[in-house]
């Protein structure tokens, strides 16, 4: 089954300056590097290491998860909607871009 990022946005057409809340969750194993397999061999660390949220060219938020972040990482953040634009979210891990999602924000 396809598992796209789950995105919830409090209001995609906010008033100018309105604080918009974003919730996003992706499926990622978040292998801690502490575990060993049945043969006692260590399972290599595989962590989501970065998340960025941009509104057009402006960086809104950067998140740097470590091992304590749960499997299928959940991130919630807010931003003040000062102008319309494309909200672009990118999740990255050791192998590069792990997931991405975009939503249009229309300030009216």
């Amino acid at each position: 089954m396809a598992r796209p990022p789950r995105i919830w946005i409090s209001n995609e057409t906010p008033a100018p300056g309105e604080v918009v809340r974003v919730r996003a969750q992706v499926v990622h194993v978040m292998e801690s590097g502490f575990r060993v397999d049945a043969e006692g061999q260590p399972i290599p660390e595989d962590l989501l290491t970065g998340f960025t949220a941009m509104l057009d060219d402006a960086l809104l938020m950067e998140w740097l998860p470590e091992t304590a972040i749960s499997q299928n990482p959940y991130i919630e953040f807010t931003f003040a909607a000062r102008h319309s634009g494309r909200l672009r979210m990118v999740w990255s891990d050791g192998s590069g871009v792990a997931d991405e999602a975009e939503r249009e924000i229309r300030v009216g």
Binding site: R6, I7, W8, R23, Q25, Q71, N72, Y74
Partner: peptide
């Protein structure tokens, strides 16, 4: 058991 809660409410679910 491993439990995975998807807390974010979305129409695609």
């Amino acid at each position: 058991q491993t439990q995975i809660d998807i807390d974010v409410r979305t129409p695609d679910l």
